[in-house]
Simulated scan of single mutants.
Amino acid sequence: LFLTFKKLIRLLDSAVGGEPFFSRLASGKIDDKTVVFAGDTGRVNVAMGRRGKTPSKFGCRQEVDFNFFQAHLWREMKGKSEHIAPAVVWREIQTFIKGHRKVADSREGFLSREDYMELVGMKMNWAVRGSRDDLYDLFLSYESCKKAINGFDRMDVAFDVLRRLQQHDYKGPPIHHLYVDEVQDLAQIEAVLMMRVLPNPQAIVFVGDTCQTVSSETDFRFKDLRSCVKEIFYPTSSPEVVKELWSLLVNYRSHDGIVQASNHIVSLLEELFPMTIDKLPPAMGQNAGPPPECLNFDELSRLLCELDSKRSSRSTCLLGANQL
């Protein structure tokens, strides 16, 4: 069974005892009349104006993602600063304050100010390291704005399911194995949720690439995922019990000229931002190839001519498959 994480957590919501996070019909499906999910442009649960925000006529719950946060909530939040971008604030909230693995065992569903200051430490985004108090104040303002529109975010859903798992059993279909791809797009608390649904370290495989972290929600490192595995499955054992990462170093998609160029860029990230990326052995391409060239076209027509598949094989600068 192939599922996105969004679909998986909605299934888990209905399969764990207690009151589901989402209102359900008799069939078990989510009642669409009670919730507006992010991206549903036809139904927005909040109207913004100069006088503030008022719930819309729908009167249902509104999912908040980064786009909604930036478009509707950011300008209403108190204490925001010009030197902290909304994307940075959102990622700190989702990754650490509400997405840290320690949140799974909290009562409130988020880190206290003291825990945030202590646990995050040097892992925090270097650009806002001196603004942690301000960031936490912005988080409190965000929660207030979200509550005013009856909103929720993906960490609220994960925490609710985790909280119910502590009191009730999982009642859904048996899950024997989990293969989680693109794990770099998940927060720690979401990884913890999967480990507690399937409490067998031999039955879960996490695969991902920190260099492909494109989600606006989270910062990810495999070191943090290893800490989750250690705390969930081996809480009384030494750290060495969790094996090292198995790195897949051969790139089958690009030739070695491109791969070596990307290795140089990654090495700069490792040197300049050591706490934001996993340091892994350099990758290699399966096939040899020339190093990439920087093209400078002053006219769009010249660029289109180079990209023309019928002409590119005769071009002085080979593109794509013509390089192999």
Score class of each variant (00 low, 15 high):
Val46Gly: 05
Phe68Val: 04
Leu3Ile: 01
Ile204Tyr: 09
Ala261Asp: 04
Met77Cys: 11
Asp169Gly: 07
Met155Ser: 08
Gly39Ala: 13
Ser238Phe: 06
Gly257Ile: 05
Glu271Lys: 15
Leu304Gly: 14
Lys223Glu: 07
Ser313His: 05
Glu271Pro: 04
Leu11Glu: 07
Gln70Asp: 10
Val180Phe: 10
Glu240Asp: 10
Ser313Phe: 03
Lys6Asn: 15
Phe22Val: 04
Ile93Val: 10
Glu118Ser: 12
Lys78Ile: 06
Ile97Thr: 03
Leu8Val: 08
Val241Arg: 14
Ser56Tyr: 07
Phe68His: 06
Pro55Met: 03
Ser227Phe: 07
Asn67Tyr: 13
Cys294Pro: 01
Ile97Ser: 04
His177Arg: 15
Ile258Lys: 07
Ser14Met: 02
Arg129Asp: 12
Val161Cys: 02
Phe273Ala: 15
Ala261Pro: 00
Ser247Lys: 08
Ala15Trp: 09
Trp90Tyr: 11
Leu319Met: 14
Ser112Val: 01
Thr218Ser: 07
Trp74Met: 01
Arg91Met: 09
Cys60Lys: 01
Arg24Met: 06
Gln94Pro: 08
Ile258Tyr: 12
Arg314Pro: 10
Ser56Met: 09
Asp32Cys: 04
Val214Glu: 00
Pro235Ile: 06
Leu186His: 03
Phe139Gly: 00
Ala38Tyr: 01
Ala191Pro: 00
Asp153His: 12
Leu165Ser: 09
Phe222Ser: 11
Tyr234Ile: 10
Ile189Gln: 05
Gln212Met: 10
Lys78Ser: 12
Glu19Asp: 12
Glu19Tyr: 11
Pro199Cys: 08
Lys243Asn: 11
Thr236Gly: 11
Lys33Trp: 03
Pro20Ala: 05
Val36Thr: 10
Gly151Ile: 02
Ala15Arg: 03
Val183Leu: 03
Met195Arg: 04
Gln94Met: 15
Cys294His: 04
Arg226Asp: 07
Met48Thr: 07
Glu244Ala: 15
Gln184Trp: 05
Ala26Ile: 00
Ala321Lys: 14
Val35Trp: 02
Val214Tyr: 04
Asp115Lys: 11
Val36Tyr: 07
Ile204Val: 04
Gly130Asn: 10
Lys243Arg: 14
Val266Tyr: 07
Ala87Ser: 13
Thr236Phe: 06
Phe58Glu: 08
Pro291Met: 11
Leu111Glu: 00
Pro174Asn: 08
Gly130Glu: 10
Asn263Gln: 04
Arg51Ala: 15
Leu1Ser: 13
Phe206Pro: 06
Ala15Asn: 03
Pro239Tyr: 14
Arg101Trp: 09
Ser23Tyr: 00
Phe220Ala: 07
Lys33Glu: 03
Phe220Arg: 03
Val157Trp: 01
Tyr116Lys: 03
Phe139Asp: 00
Ser27Lys: 07
Tyr252His: 15
Arg50Gln: 13
Val214Ser: 08
Arg50Gly: 15
Asp298Phe: 14
Gln167Arg: 12
Asp134Ala: 15
Ser81Asp: 04
Leu324Glu: 13
Leu269Lys: 15
Leu162Asp: 01
His177Phe: 11
Asp153Cys: 13
Leu318Val: 08
Gly130Asp: 08
Glu114Trp: 07
Ala283Gln: 14
Pro291Gln: 12
Glu270Gly: 11
Tyr170Asn: 01
Ser227Val: 13
Val229Tyr: 07
Lys78Gly: 08
Gly59Trp: 02
Asp160Ile: 03
Arg196Asp: 01
Val214His: 05
Ala71Lys: 15
Leu186Arg: 08
Leu140Asp: 11
Leu165Pro: 04
Met77Leu: 14
